[in-house]
């Protein structure tokens, strides 16, 4: 167990190293003039050259990568050329906002999709199964920006009961909590739609097993068959998938954040990418990849806890 954990974390460290180098090198393929960007269009070529030298940008890729790595390991991710602030500050700020939204969404999505998925899957091809399946399939099919636009049209334009943007400040006259409703609704419907069909499929599979038939035939009430026998088995496979949603919730929310002008991590990455803010892109990518790998490790342990047949 201990060795397995150690290997997982070693694996994670190696991947992070490779990823950080790749992103660093990718931005070198067609070098952009950072010094020129900082000084603006009216600086003379001499000034640009001097700043380039001062920032050490004239050294080789490997030398600069080594320096970057040494700094990053001590927690210094450099300066964002877009916001003119240390990367770490912006990163934690935006990541915090996204984690709040992600937390709310996760707390709603999991019970919502487990409930609907189990109800749909326990009686395969019944009317209620068909209804839930179509609902979830439609929800998962509508792109987030389209879903956002539809909900905006209904709840903001027509009914006027919710704010259309969520900048997390009260200057627009809407309380903060109300600004979470629409973004969370979009994410819940889109992502929940996907999870419901996963959980339903797993539940259907379990309900076809002989031990369920045995339980039913010995006269056990259907409710008990579902809750005591089917539920745990049906949740083993989707468990990993549910955990993997954390990834999506941390780094996949860029579209939703754009629709509702939410100051989150995804929007920061988009702005960084559009402005070629390398330091910010690099740190953000490392952050996102770490989240992915941590959820994978977490998923493995959860899997082992749920299914006693699986051991390292």
């Amino acid at each position: 167990m201990l060795r397995y954990t150690a290997r997982q974390f070693l694996n994670m460290a190696v991947t992070l190293l490779v990823v950080s180098f790749l992103v660093f090198a990718l931005n070198e393929l067609t070098p952009i003039d950072v010094a020129r960007k900082l000084l603006g269009p009216y600086a003379t070529q001499d000034q640009v050259d001097i700043l380039t030298k001062q920032m050490g940008l004239d050294r080789s890729l490997l030398a600069r990568y080594r320096e970057y790595l040494a700094n990053a390991l001590s927690g210094n991710f450099g300066e964002s050329i877009l916001y003119r602030r240390p990367v770490a500050q912006i990163l934690w700020d935006r990541l915090g906002n996204t984690l709040v939204l992600a937390g709310i969404c996760f707390a709603v999505i999991v019970p919502f999709s487990v409930l609907l998925g189990v109800i749909a899957g326990m009686r395969e091809r019944s009317f209620i199964d068909r209804a839930i399946s179509v609902f979830s399939s439609v929800c998962a099919s509508i792109p987030e920006f389209a879903l956002g636009v539809f909900l905006l049209a209904i709840f903001v334009v027509e009914l006027g009961i919710l704010p259309g943007i969520s900048p997390l400040s009260t200057s627009g006259g809407w309380p903060i909590w109300s600004q979470f409703v629409l973004p969370a609704a979009v994410v819940t419907l889109y992502d929940g739609g996907y999870l419901i069909s996963m959980i339903r499929a797993s539940m259907v599979e379990v309900m076809r097993q002989p031990f369920i038939r045995t339980a039913t035939l010995k006269g056990m009430p259907f409710r008990d068959v579902v809750v005591k026998h089917a539920l745990r088995n049906a949740l083993i496979t989707p468990f990993t998938v549910i955990l993997l949603q954390l990834n999506y919730l941390v780094s996949g929310l860029v579209v939703v954040e754009m629709v509702f002008a939410y100051p989150g991590f995804g929007r920061m990455m988009l702005e960084a990418a559009l402005n070629k803010d390398i330091a910010l892109i690099e740190a953000g990518t490392l952050c996102a990849v770490s989240v992915t790998m941590l959820t994978q490790i977490l998923g493995d342990y959860g899997y082992m806890a749920l299914d006693p047949r699986i051991r390292v």
């Binding site: 990823v19 941390v250 780094s251 990418a273 990518t285 990849v289």
Partner: peptide
């Protein structure tokens, strides 16, 4: 391991 949308953006 790269989140999809971030890879696109980069």
């Amino acid at each position: 391991a790269f989140p999809r949308i971030i890879l696109y953006l980069i």
